[in-house]
Nucleic acid binder design. Sequence first.
DNA 1: GATGAATGAGCGTTCATTCAT
DNA 2: AATGAATGAACGCTCATTCAT
Lengths: 210, 210, 210, 210
Amino acid sequence: MGKLDMNKKIKRESILSTAFSIFTDKGVSKTSISEIVEKAGVAKGTFYLYFKDKYDLKNKLVSHQSSLIFKKALDALNENGKDKLEFEDRIIFIIDNIINQLSKNPRLLQFISKNLSWGIFKSAVTSLESDSDGEDEISFKYVYEKMLIENAPMVFDDPEMMLFIIVELVSSTIYSSILYKEPVEIQKLKPYLYRAVRMIIKNHEIEMKE
Amino acid sequence: MGKLDMNKKIKRESILSTAFSIFTDKGVSKTSISEIVEKAGVAKGTFYLYFKDKYDLKNKLVSHQSSLIFKKALDALNENGKDKLEFEDRIIFIIDNIINQLSKNPRLLQFISKNLSWGIFKSAVTSLESDSDGEDEISFKYVYEKMLIENAPMVFDDPEMMLFIIVELVSSTIYSSILYKEPVEIQKLKPYLYRAVRMIIKNHEIEMKE
Amino acid sequence: MGKLDMNKKIKRESILSTAFSIFTDKGVSKTSISEIVEKAGVAKGTFYLYFKDKYDLKNKLVSHQSSLIFKKALDALNENGKDKLEFEDRIIFIIDNIINQLSKNPRLLQFISKNLSWGIFKSAVTSLESDSDGEDEISFKYVYEKMLIENAPMVFDDPEMMLFIIVELVSSTIYSSILYKEPVEIQKLKPYLYRAVRMIIKNHEIEMKE
Amino acid sequence: MGKLDMNKKIKRESILSTAFSIFTDKGVSKTSISEIVEKAGVAKGTFYLYFKDKYDLKNKLVSHQSSLIFKKALDALNENGKDKLEFEDRIIFIIDNIINQLSKNPRLLQFISKNLSWGIFKSAVTSLESDSDGEDEISFKYVYEKMLIENAPMVFDDPEMMLFIIVELVSSTIYSSILYKEPVEIQKLKPYLYRAVRMIIKNHEIEMKE
DNA sequence: GATGAATGAGCGTTCATTCAT
DNA sequence: AATGAATGAACGCTCATTCAT
């Protein structure tokens, strides 16, 4: 990579990381492009070389950050010997890992907030597969199929909906619990939440695969 | 109430109803105070006599509209003879009624959006009791206690958390389903959702009350 | 007119006269709204209370200034006893008066420039009749019909086209002559121009009216 | 011409032809240099190697295109046996040819617009004579003198002014007629216009040359 | 000569808020 | 209480121009 390309990458990265920092600090709508470029140390025009507008930038950040979280959780699962875990436990493991990540970084949770839901999940599943920037990104479609359809010892009644219900339930409850400790703090919520998740899974099981 | 008080009330009501109409039509952030007062037929300055800013107005509308929805659901429950229903079925009845209301009015769902969740629920429970505007508002605390604690034939393990989990699960999933038909339309989601709700309730039951 | 209305009028007039001054000084496209309001001593927002944008303002100025020029010429014609003049001479009188006005004010000529042509003439004829601001404006349609159709001692072959040709010829030649003295200064151009105009008129005459 | 000079020429020509295409398509002021260089396939900096700014480029195009139009008209005159035509008819022939060219290409008329008037005529006469790019350009001074002074069978009273008046009259009227069909379309205007031109010429004749 | 990333002044426009009436 | 003209900071965005490579 030439010196010039290097510089390009640096400018872009500078905008991304600065924006992420401000977005998580005070929210997207209250952040102006002027503030981003000023703190990033680049000219206003430079912003428009790399992003269409503030929301283009935001979407790229949300996608990227969400991917990183999933990836970390999946990596942890693999390291910790997923083979030893039952299917249900693998799901819980991933959820637990993600919750722990977000508990340590509530600003990040605030930012991706309700975006870490079916929308992002679905778009990830359908589009990230061939993302050229995708070194750090993960193919959710692949994971989803591997984990639920192929590797699972069960046949599920509408596995996509099951997943949808779980994702929404988890993302929605932890938001309130982590950020506002309402109605209880996250550690107290966990056992109830995981019990609910397990029941939802059980409820979708049809039969053992052979 | 004097004629002057009457007039005052009228201006305020005009702003409220006009704002609600525009908010549901095009969203809060794209609506300016100028547009609200213009369509409401009052002067700009008048706005500031009754509301601090646009978000003060928005919050009041969200609270009010959410209350109306709950109230309608509870009224329907009472009319349809709640005594004949089991506790679980009463919960499902209310959820179903609310979903039906929102299905017919997706704009309203969009507006109160994810606000029809624990935040509003909790604030309703703790503050609406003595709201002076509260003629149409309902005391959720009262209902909540009547329905869950007193009248329920069970003792629940942490009933507040159970309610929290249900509220978040329902509000989060129907948002996606009603507005974007993702992953399925609301009628297809319902049986799965209600099954999940029933399981969560069962999961919190401890023992029959005597 | 109340004090408030008075103030309103003053602001608007201030913008108009300031803009006219700058427009004639350095052209419309090189003038920014910022400069106008700054020199007019009003806030930027005030501009948008009275004008849609810079071109709305420009059009209003062109129309208004053009009308004033025509009106002055017609007034002079009436004062100087138009009854004594032949039809042809009346046309020349008006042209000469307008040329003299513009000679003394080349900036104004520059500004309304090629706008004082068939476009403005036609739109004046068709729309100014009922203009509510029209105290100072003149009804060109009325003048045109009175002068050419009714009062003229001739019947003309297509009087509208005759007028069109004359207006274009005059406005186009004097622009170059007054502003750049090319190919000759206006006083040297006049006799040739007027001879041409008279020939064009004669060329359209069909017969004496009875 | 070396390969490098060749390449240089190619970049310049590419900018010129691309700019002409965009200018006629959407107007000069709405066209940015970015768009020109992008579509021309050259770098932004390259633009400034050949042109001072957008208006330098525009002026060069207007001159060039106007010259081409005149040249075509003169070529047609020569091909069609100008010797057989009277002087007056030769002028009309040229005018008619130019009008026909522009009728078929109103975008071009819009572009050179009112520039196809005395300004360009004069600058052509005085400066194009020695233009180094002038292979395709024509020496108007030469033509003008040949046609009007030397070859004409008449002596004219101030031939330059006569020409000026004709050029302005024609360019000004056809602009409105071709582009807006106001007050009539070009075919209906022609007979009146040509009659006016003939009268202007006649009016400048002094006597037969011997 | 050619490039194109970077610049940053400047644009038109919006709009919440104020305050004299 | 009610008004609405006036404000001006702040916005997103454009684009001609520069200059290191």
